[in-house]
Nucleic acid binder design. Structure first.
Lengths: 217, 217
DNA sequence: ATAATTTTTTAGACAAGACTAAAATTATAG
DNA sequence: CTATAATTTTAGTCTTGTCTAAAAAATTAT
């Protein structure tokens, strides 16, 4: 597997979230910031290697093998993110580009040792689940903060949009994974919220609350 | 800098050990397990980028900039080796190939944090010095074990030939960096030695003793 | 149902980095 | 000091992964 091939498989894995549906050439090209014609070329190549099932003009779907490889790239990416944040004290918003490189390091032994070294974490620093070596994901029961009722408590389990500015916003306010959130009030008009996190009161707009996953308490 | 370019610079750095002498096309090609014609192509390219001074039919020499970049690749390689051995409990003989990949990860911040995380080590697991971020190397005063006189003590500081079989030989006998060596006897005929390491007596042939660096005590 | 639009594919080109075969230069030996 | 050998370079080809422009298929709208 070349680096480019791995990137295509990973992009397909993430686009066809959970389900493993078909992915269109254009969607794939967009995700990888490349042209549809390039995506077509690669899909044909991956089909020949039986990593995907590709049908002309119909897009492609990961084969079991392709899916497994993709899951292991994601596994590596997220394990390295944990390493960077937990061990090297990087911030949430600084780790993505580096993990993007580290995910291509080839050594099955390394991945397993890293996993153990980190204490076999189940989620990455953004709360996204880490697939195990078979590609299985431990599903965590979580809802969006905006669906949470006033006068209730919940724990921050993850964030949806890992946009840079958003991550900086959160880390600046010291809002992090595992934070206990108490919803005081929800404004019916704009659906903004008043919440308490670590003794501090925050006013949170709808756009923020729809990008935070929580687990009710 | 592409990965190939980095590999060429690093190979030149290591071939022109310390000195920064000129390196021949063939020597470079051999080191990189490629053909001389490929090396020529690359040297011309690196010359255009002013990373080396290349003269047709005369070989090439690293420019200050090329030399600095090469030193940082070596720095990364050796820091990652320390990480793999110290933190992930890999053996001496298992880390080279993985470090070969990790050395190309691009992020100045990562290198500095890794360095701190590892306690700013000065040597890698084979006793080779780790250049600092300016490319400077702390020279350690060491001699070959074969030059050590009978009835003397010394400390194992490094190994010369990091050949796989040799590393396995050493780790199997539990001979490692920092081991205290007492030379009991040196046979004049074949220059083999009788030494004590960690309460155990070993019979060491000339070829072994010329590949071990020690510091007299 | 046919025309217009969008999506997807093909064809041809390019850059990086490698290779082979042949030519040019330098080194070595008689 | 030539003749031969070894080294190095050039020229041309190949693969990977990308691109543009044009053709083909699928979708949408009238």
């Amino acid at each position: 597997m070349t680096r480019a091939e791995e990137n295509y498989l990973k992009a397909m894995y993430q686009l066809s979230a959970g389900k493993n549906q078909r992915v269109s050439t254009t969607a794939l090209a967009e995700r990888l910031e490349t042209k549809p014609s390039s995506a077509t070329d690669m899909l044909q190549k991956l089909h020949d290697k039986s990593m995907v099932k590709y049908t002309r003009y119909k897009g492609a779907q990961l084969s079991p093998e392709g899916r497994h490889i993709a899951s292991q790239i994601v596994r590596k990416h997220r394990l390295w993110e944990v390493f960077l944040v937990e061990k090297l004290a990087f911030g949430w918003d600084q780790v993505h580009d580096i993990a993007e490189q580290l995910e291509h390091i080839k050594s099955p032994d390394l991945v397993e040792r890293l996993d153990v070294f980190l204490g076999c974490p189940k989620v990455d620093p953004h709360g996204d689940p880490i697939p195990d070596d078979k590609g299985n994901i431990e599903q965590i029961n979580k809802i969006l903060l905006c669906e949470q009722e006033p006068n209730s408590r919940c724990v921050l389990m993850g964030i949806k949009d890992t946009d840079d500015a958003f991550l900086k916003y959160l880390s600046q306010k010291n809002i992090k994974l595992g934070s206990l959130i108490t919803v005081l009030d929800k404004e019916p008009f704009d659906e903004s919220m008043t919440v308490v996190i670590d003794q501090k009161t925050h006013f949170i707009s709808k756009i923020i609350s729809t990008n935070i996953y929580v687990q009710p308490r």
